[in-house]
Nucleic acid binder design. Structure first.
Lengths: 329, 329
DNA sequence: ATGAAAGCGCTAACAT
DNA sequence: ATGTTAGCGCTTTCAT
């Protein structure tokens, strides 16, 4: 069996308390004693039992990260940012993929409770966000990408209104007249981007055929295919997608049907995923500060833990319009 | 405070033992009693304390997953596969990014020991793999992508020799005469692919200028830039990259220098990452069964836990050559 | 089928 | 500066 703290104490000729003190660097220990203990630890290859530490101290030093799917580049990057920040503070991360499935969300939230996590960073579906009641939980929650009910938890989001407006205005400037948009139906984010997009276009007298779809490439693909089949005076001359997954599906559909960008139809969207820069022409996007979003979420969480009663804060980060060939010369 | 098992027991008028029995579905409990206990659990919103369960039972139900960087699409997919399989078995996973840094690898391995993990799935650097001594660890390890010392642990890898040979022969068939290759210097995988690639080319009398580089896009970018600057009779007419990251760097360099594929220079590599299919021309790749690799790693681990003394196994999965425009019409 | 009691390995009062 | 002691919340013998 692995050595226990008691074995270390005996071998070093001190009490377990003293060993505990040198482990946590907390409490007074004579330097010569500390060295001796450290030596024994090294020699026995002692590793404190994390489960015992957590049980006894009541501090699990664990962050729960609940996202729809790490394979979405947005969440891949967020997860890396959260993990970097967490490990740097001696905390661990439990990553959960919900696949936008409310049952999985509920299940993982239960898991977080069993784990007695220190805090949770959470990207809820629209439905789950609506129902979410922070008072139910013993740990603080920071929402990312999608905000929950206003003021109920801390949150880090993109400035969706601004970004969607900039995208719309860019299309107007470039002279597009029949703009169509695909928006994720599972998130507040999709709704916010939708509202701002439609509003901005209407202000400029440009028609906006915006639709909500399941947040998967396939859904976007199907919708774009249908649009391309329309009579030419009904067919959109510009298409926007509200996240990287939908943008990918839209792009694939355009390619497959031989639609040339931007001549036959322009394309733009959210998320500066790697491929958007690599294809020809490049795809105009709103770049989100992805790593920053994750990093800031951890910061909000840390501050909340330090000061639980502080009033809730929503951090709104700016997106950056990256213009590429898909929306004009 | 959150209710404890004792609270549930008292409210249900039974002993904690009985509650424990219904929680674990293990041991005899009268049906009427079970229902009553379940009711109380629901009513009190009781969640068993995972740390206490782990400490007492000695079973952490935790898998460690150590990779270089989840942002590498290969590992993104592997991590999703491992998480799916783990959660399906009621296990949790701790994900660690080493950035190919031996110090981080050592640190995370220590963390795994503290966590008393049930098992580890590990993609070591070349150096760490060489030094790795399975006997040091109380938990079984399954290596992925890169194998450790032969027969020391279970492992899941690609058939690197076969894949690299197929890639080389494809280039020969297409008539390329001066093939250059970029191989990751931090993994056994890079070495295996290198050896097979060079060997296959030489058998066909084709020159092979193969080099080892740091496994980052930037390193590949720099090397390819240098190759392009060479005298035209020295310049390679085909370039191969031994993983998705290097392939991306190589592709970027070719684009930036206006090299047309495949006319000026052909390009091929490993990993069927999303962008390789989206760019024009598409990039010829060896597609790895990525999700399968993760899934199989969990299976080997599960079997090893069931039968610790079984002799070690290496699962070798075939790659698939996906021919696209970057290596010819 | 159920319960009493011991104890997993550690930390945190509280002595001294 | 160091040690003694009492649990943290659970599972697991061992009785009954």
């Amino acid at each position: 069996m692995a050595p226990r703290i008691k074995d270390v104490a005996e071998a070093a000729g001190v009490s377990v308390t003293t060993v505990s003190r040198v482990l946590s660097n907390n409490g007074p220990v004579r330097d010569s004693v500390r060295r001796r203990v450290l030596e024994v630890i090294e020699q026995l290859d002692y590793r404190p039992n994390a489960a015992a530490q957590r049980l006894r101290s009541g501090d699990t030093a664990t962050i729960g990260l609940i996202v729809s799917d790490v394979r979405n580049p947005f969440f891949t990057e967020v997860s890396r940012a959260v993990e970097d920040a967490a490990y740097a503070q001696g905390m661990r991360v439990i990553l959960c993929n919900t696949d936008e499935n409310p049952e999985k969300e509920a299940m993982y939230l239960r898991l977080m409770e069993s784990e007695r996590v220190t805090g949770v960073i959470y990207s809820p579906t629209y439905e789950a966000a609506r129902r979410f009641d922070a008072r139910t939980y013993a740990f603080p929650v920071v929402m990312i990408d999608r905000a929950g009910p206003a003021g109920v938890t801390d949150a880090v989001t993109l400035d969706n209104r601004d970004a969607a407006t900039r995208l719309a205005e860019h299309l107007v400037e470039r002279g597009y007249k029949r703009c169509a948009g695909l928006f994720g139906n599972a998130s507040t984010t999709g709704r916010e981007r939708h509202a701002a997009f439609v509003e901005a276009l209407q202000q400029h007298g440009v028609s906006a055929a915006a639709e909500f779809v399941d947040p998967h490439p396939e859904a976007a693909h199907a919708r774009v295919t249908a649009w391309l089949a329309a009579e030419s005076d009904e067919r959109p001359d510009a298409i926007v997608a509200s996240n990287g997954l939908l943008l990918l599906g839209a792009y694939r559909a355009l390619r497959e049907h031989g639609a040339r960008m931007p001549d036959d139809v322009a394309l733009a969207g959210f998320d500066n995923d790697a491929w958007t820069d690599l294809v020809t022409p490049g795809v105009t996007v709103i770049a989100q500060p992805v790593y920053e979003i994750g990093k800031n979420a951890m910061q909000l969480l840390t501050q909340r833990l330090a000061e639980p009663e502080m009033s809730t804060r929503t951090l709104v980060l700016p997106g950056e319009l990256v213009v590429r060939g898909s929306t004009g010369a």
